[in-house]
Design a binder for these strands. Structure first.
Lengths: 152, 152
DNA sequence: CACAATTAGATTGCGCACAATTTAATTTAT
DNA sequence: ATAAATTAAATTGTGCGCAATCTAATTGTG
């Protein structure tokens, strides 16, 4: 009886943190959507652009390591960004296995428009910068612990 | 110059919290995967089962409100759970627009197997229960603020 | 040098997630 | 009581996210 009840609480508690993260990710996505629509980007596409705005000419693998995504996700996404003329995909001559991703002028220019996004998100979060940074650090620490478990 | 630099920091900062949440959700998913494979469930299916284990005979809408999901996501997911004989979908006689979701004996029984999941997750998180609860509360508060913005 | 192992990316298939639309049932306002 | 508005699910189409598999290039080893 007590055992069963305890197990139920445990099932719920477990649910809470992961579900909290999962549902917050979706909530974020919904807030981002109208902002990113103006840029013609999805959220994962926006992430790729952020990586490229920081450093250009990166191989697919490099982007994947930053974003925790593999080629199964990135290849079609990058093809869409290429079709939108925001990036260019070129085989590396140095190592022909690699495909290097470079920004086009259009992709570079989009950065200016993107500057409006963070401000809107900050406002929507209704938190101070300090709070957001603190929360970010906690969540990243949790993420790294979880990813650590996966590497055994 | 200073303006451009500040904007870059801002772009990065924005990236951080949302990306932290986004990437942590995926990290969680990867940790859950082998555990849920044993139950024959995906993570969203597991969430639906958690809702049903708490309360049975709920309409699709009710599940959607708990999980922030709509019928576009739930209808096919529930059909898969029905095909797996974990749930039963029946039109409500009271209100024929609604489809009520009830656990089958098999779905009810799966709850016992599911009890192993939370413990494994707790261990993988390498955090104390207190830390997890605190983080959960912060994240839920953020989620609710974000969702609040969406309702204007 | 040759051959096995590794690596980068592409491809296929499945299951979300969500916008937009459709259908049918119920509620409300007239 | 009937028409209009609302509501619940289902459906369609697009884009991730990831496992599994495949191809081609590179690296490591004997």
């Amino acid at each position: 009886m007590a055992r069963k009840h305890a197990a139920d609480i445990s099932l719920r508690l477990d649910n809470q943190l992961c579900f909290a993260v999962y549902s917050t990710a979706h909530a974020f996505n919904r807030v981002y959507k109208p902002l990113l629509d103006r840029l013609g980007l999805t959220y994962p596409q926006y992430l790729v652009m952020l990586v490229l705005w920081e450093r250009d000419g990166v191989p697919v693998k490099g982007i994947g390591e930053r974003l925790f995504l593999d080629s199964g996700t990135l290849t079609p996404l990058l093809k869409r960004l290429e079709a939108a003329e925001l990036i260019q995909r070129t085989r590396s001559t140095e190592d022909e296995r690699q495909v290097l991703i470079a920004l086009t002028p259009k992709g570079e220019a989009l950065r200016e428009k993107a500057r409006a996004v963070p401000q809107a998100i900050l406002a929507a979060s209704a938190c101070s910068v300090g709070e957001l940074v603190a929360m970010k650090n906690e969540i990243v620490a949790l993420r790294d612990k979880l990813n650590g478990v996966l590497g055994e």
